[in-house]
Design a protein around this nucleic acid. Structure first.
Lengths: 336, 336
DNA sequence: CGGCTTGGGTAAACCGTTTTAATTACCCGA
DNA sequence: TCGGGTAATTAAAACGGTTTACCCAAGCCG
């Protein structure tokens, strides 16, 4: 059926040991060039590929990484996955997809994969929900784990430079002449706090003290963004511009503004995190801060591989390329 | 380190054979209830999970499926993946992610996974590109394969009911009073042909003969959709409504219309395939045909598992739930 | 010419499970 | 008390590699 190392050995007139050692380039192997060639030729001729299971069993290593996210269809995580997949493949690792919520529900399939050694390490999305901590701790206890897209003081993690991104967005608005700038925070995660900090930083630098009313919960859905925007509109010292922590929330905000009879960007400017593909095709085309999501995926895999080599947990912030402002039609100088 | 079946056996005072047979419910095993309990208790106590590699080696089966798509970040495929992931997990299979383009470039990692038996079957996106055929044939020769989201006469495949979807979209326009209805075809695949057929069917039923000028290449990018729409606008017997084969192409079409000074839907109606999450937030909110993408993913896994059990290649069309029209703001009666 | 090195390999154990065939324990009736 | 028969359990091989220790032959040196 399958062609095994024994077949190759027979074909080359040697023992399996030699085949293994030639193919893996064992430095302590002494072998005549002629023999080596015979082995290589036989392997090529029979189109031999070693059994994944057999190697994994022997090495106690699967050459596979797990990737568990909440929603694969979320385009943001799609980008992260693309980067992670590429980096893993380059390093000779295969990527195994799982559903965090499944994990939370105690999905036996994935539990067995982790406990049974089907993966060597795990990339785990941290959403900031209550059940998260338990999942994270269980995983970490079993297997080297890296948290995606958020900072952690206790676990290895890879985050974006949210402070810089948020500062960039806010500065853009300041440069346009805005001083009353609101922020729709995502909530629940470290990065939410970072974005608040970046926003406040930029305001402080411009000599503006942030009004507490300028900070509202935007969540990460269209509905929550809609609600958050309405809240901002109701505040006495109403902002003339808003930094949105999440694209979907920003879309909800745009709807709320349209409903309130306000024109974007004439009456109010909006800039949001993450330059998703359709941002340019909303009306108005959304000004965004492009964050290096793919690079985050790459960095996560890199860090995880480091951990597999025995390094301790480390917190990485991906700053390259740095957050970039994509100017489109949703930002303009404040109404005079 | 890892707790193995031998540890459990020792702990329960039996041999590994008994442990294995108890845990796997071997029907020919005769065992005292008391012994069985001891084994189960030991397994639970030590938190034993069998080694994935060892079972895979023994069974010559990895309990894993491969999933190779062109672009994980594409929200359409995201939905398919979500469905596939869930179905695979339910069946006790784990999902392994790969990049078709990597495959085309001869990505060694994935080649080794396939050849080395790390996956039992493969779900493969068919894009209709030139290099596709080679990849498909290579994969099929090695491993049971199911093609995603398109029909094939030679290989196992799972497709959507594109004829019905296209007919539904066209009928909607007809019901609004349109007779001159264009179609932006995706091109390259079977499903593109199916959509043309559905469109033509609906027109014929309404007693309208399709003008050749009403059919243009829309591709699956914003740019190609833009170009295709311009082509349609230039035709002598210009349509008053358009069915778009792809959302991104439809977005490009909307832009082209805006540039041409035409108002959607007052001057021209647009309906497009696939109800992506942001369709409601484009301006105008896009009327779409929602296709059962998740169910496609589920059906693909189901078919693949069937094939693993020895059934021959089969072509499946997912009709449940049937295509649904989501009426939004981009369709209206034709200008009078 | 005997012992030592070195080149060129080989033999065998091992990784953790599963499974078939074989072995032991036990009970019962004669 | 001893077969015989069945119930309960075990031994061992096999899956396909990898790796360590070892072996043999040839050459070299003293």
């Amino acid at each position: 059926m399958r062609v095994s190392i024994t077949d190759v050995a027979r074909h080359a007139g040697v023992t399996p040991a030699v085949v293994s050692r030639v193919l893996n380039g064992d430095p302590k192997l002494q072998v005549r060039a002629e023999t080596r060639d015979r082995v290589l030729a036989a392997a090529r001729e029979l189109d031999y590929t070693p059994s994944h299971a057999a190697r994994a069993l022997r090495h106690n290593r699967a050459d596979a990484l797990g990737l568990a996210v909440h929603d694969v269809a979320n385009p943001l995580y799609g980008e992260i996955i693309v980067g992670a997949q590429k980096a893993a493949a380059d390093a000779g690792y295969v990527l195994l997809l799982a559903d965090v919520d499944g994990l939370a529900r105690g999905d036996e399939t994935f539990r067995r994969a982790v406990h049974g050694g089907a993966i060597d390490g795990l990339l785990l999305q941290r959403a900031g929900t209550a059940s998260d901590r338990k999942i994270i701790d269980t995983a970490t206890a079993r297997i080297p784990t890296v948290l995606l897209n958020d900072r952690s003081t206790t676990h290895a993690s890879v985050a974006l430079d949210d402070v810089a991104g948020s500062r960039l967005a806010t500065q853009h608005l300041i440069e346009l002449g805005h001083t009353r700038i609101g922020h729709l925070r995502v909530g629940g995660t470290q990065r939410s706090g970072s974005r608040v900090r970046g926003w406040r930083d930029a305001l402080t630098r411009a000599g503006v003290t942030a009004d507490p009313g300028w900070l509202a919960a935007g969540g990460h859905t269209v509905e929550s963004g809609h609600a958050g925007m309405r809240e901002l509109l109701a505040t006495p010292n109403r902002p003339t511009a808003v930094v949105g922590g999440n694209v979907l929330a920003a879309i909800g905000a745009l709807t709320a503004l349209r409903e309130a009879g306000l024109h974007v960007p004439r009456d109010l400017s909006v800039v949001a995190f993450h330059d998703v593909r359709y941002a340019a095709h909303l009306v108005p085309p959304l000004t965004t801060v492009a964050m290096p999501l793919r690079e985050l995926g790459v960095a996560a895999v890199t860090l995880l591989l480091e951990r597999l080599d025995g390094s301790g947990p480390r917190q990485v912030v991906v700053r390259d390329p740095s957050p970039t402002l994509i100017r489109r039609g949703s930002t303009a100088p404040p109404p005079s």
